[in-house]
């Protein structure tokens, strides 16, 4: 077996299969797994309104995050690709610089900024902009802010690489033929970089929907996303089979998103992607 394939099998396929197998059993009375009775009960349970609504809510939060990340990421990538060539590497480097710091520390930094007695609220109260502290932390706003902050660089990178591969003569031809800058962007540049947009969007969506650290820290535990639910099944309820079922469903959802992205890439990117 090729080393790469072996690597993939050991570290990716086997763990996924284990999860898949676990999903068909029940939790033992004291935790662990009751191997004696294969069952579909976990899937019936996952179809309960409670869990479906957590799934949908996570998808909603991930979708909002994705939309905002695209709105910020596309102009940023566009600006970088139009900057003088000697600056581009430095600008990209700045975009990914936050990744040099641990994710948890970056998240805690937001807590320092946003909390009711934190820097932002103290400053606002200090200049008299508000009397009572604004509710910036421990709510959905904070969670989406944290996710957008964490994952926008992926969008910038994906779209930048798409823009890089775009032959500038297309846009020039469009301008020469009398199209405005806006029309050129909407009808030439944007469609031809749709593959990059899709790749960035899927990155952000997939990473956001499975995230459990940000809802826990910036949401103050008051927001339950699917990642938190899975975490709780494995580490609090010690119901591995149900956690495995939920993980399996989440993986299926992510696969769907990736398949969609691959389709978009083939469709829109054509010979350029």
């Amino acid at each position: 077996m090729a080393p790469g394939l072996l690597w993939l099998t050991a570290l990716m396929i086997v763990p996924c299969l284990l999860i898949f197998v676990l999903a068909f059993y029940e939790r033992g009375i004291y935790g662990g797994i009751d191997w004696n009775a294969p069952t579909l009960g976990n899937f019936r349970r996952a179809a309960d309104y409670l869990y479906v609504s957590i799934f949908l809510d996570s998808a909603r939060i991930a979708a909002i995050t994705t939309a905002i990340a695209l709105l910020i990421g596309y102009p940023a990538a566009f600006a970088i690709s139009r900057a003088p060539a000697r600056w581009q590497t430095s600008l990209l480097f700045l975009a990914i610089l936050p990744f040099w710091t641990n994710y948890l520390i970056r998240t805690y930094a937001w807590i320092v900024l946003l909390n009711p007695v934190g820097l932002i609220n103290s400053a606002l109260i200090g200049i008299g902009a508000t009397i009572a502290p604004l509710p910036l932390l421990y709510n959905e706003f904070a969670v989406i802010l944290g996710l957008v902050y964490s994952y926008t660089p992926f969008v910038v990178l994906a779209i930048y690489s798409s823009l890089q591969r775009l032959d500038p003569s297309y846009a020039e031809a469009s301008r020469d033929l009398g199209a405005s800058a806006l029309t050129t962007f909407l009808r030439i540049t944007l469609p031809l970089t749709a593959a990059g947009v899709a790749a960035g969007a899927v990155f952000v969506f997939v990473l956001s929907i499975g995230n459990f650290v940000t809802p826990d820290l910036l949401g103050g535990g008051k927001l339950q996303m699917i990642g938190n639910l899975i975490y709780d099944q494995f580490l609090t309820a010690r119901d591995w089979p149900f956690g495995a079922t939920l993980s399996g469903l989440l993986i299926a959802l992510m696969m769907l998103a990736l398949a969609f992205q691959a389709m978009a890439a083939r469709h829109a990117g054509g010979g350029h992607a």
Binding site: R27, I29, Y30, L50, Y51, S53, I54, D57, G221, K222, Q224, N228, L229, D232, Q233, T236, A237, R238, D239
Partner: peptide
């Protein structure tokens, strides 16, 4: 105490609160 059989109903209730 360990909740044994009761753990499932218990943890579903907790998920309901969290969600």
């Amino acid at each position: 105490r360990d909740l044994g059989e009761g753990m499932k109903a218990f943890s579903k209730t907790v998920s309901e609160i969290m969600a």
